[in-house]
Amino acid sequence: MSVAPPLLAVEGLTKSYGGIHAVRGVSFSLRAGEILALIGPNGAGKSTCFDMLNGQNKPDSGHVRLLGEETTGKKPREIWRMGVGRTFQITATFATMTVRENVQVALISHGKQLYNLFGSAPNFDRNEAGRLLELVGMGGYADRPCGELAYGDLKRLELAVALANEPKLLLMDEPTAGMAPRERVDLMRLTAQIAREKSIGVLFTEHDMDVVFEHADRIIVLNRGTLIAEGSPAEVRGNPQVQAVYLGEGLVYDARHREGTSA
């Protein structure tokens, strides 16, 4: 279909723990600027799969390639240097530092100044840090201690930090978990807008089907470690197997769409 080479190519990814296959033969690809959702029941292997992409976990077999370059088995920090930013399910930020300092640390790392003992960190790339914070709508919070931020703001800060090294790919693990519906929509719109503008590929896992169906270009469904479906939101939604193992009767997510109160 597409002539562009895949940004991310995953082939035959497999991982087992104590004889039990957590992930078995998972293959998929992702284009630049595309937003791909990975969904599936609790315990289907989403986290394992995700961790093998970001380097937290090593696959038993299979390959992950970023623009043709192998990332399989590399450490998280090496994968980041290849242009992969990420956000965590439970936010991971530097709680005792200010919002701006959080971004500056990422910029320092990107500029390879980590072992600079005598420079002035408070003035390091201050403008660039401010620009990134503006981009995610956090410009007014730059001097706030990170530990005081509301949860939704932490998620936006994580996004700014993830963008600091001009990534080609964003990995987001349950980006809207723990957020109110409006915040979810805002964050995902922002992400989509940035992804489209900068042609960044986004892979995210999510349980909120309202978010998934509204923002994903494509969805892949994992069950018991294997991919059982792939396609557009409409296709996946209508897939009887996906309904049986995951979506259920649609009581707890669909109502909003039916009532037409969707944002």
């Binding site: 599936g40 029941p41 609790n42 349950e174 978990a177 349980h207 089907m209 193992v245 995951y246 979506l247 259920g248 009767e249 649609g250 009581l251 707890v252 997510y253």
Partner: peptide, 8 residues
């Protein structure tokens, strides 16, 4: 954090 089916 639960899948729609478990929530039901």
């Amino acid at each position: 954090g639960l899948s729609p089916k478990i929530v039901e």
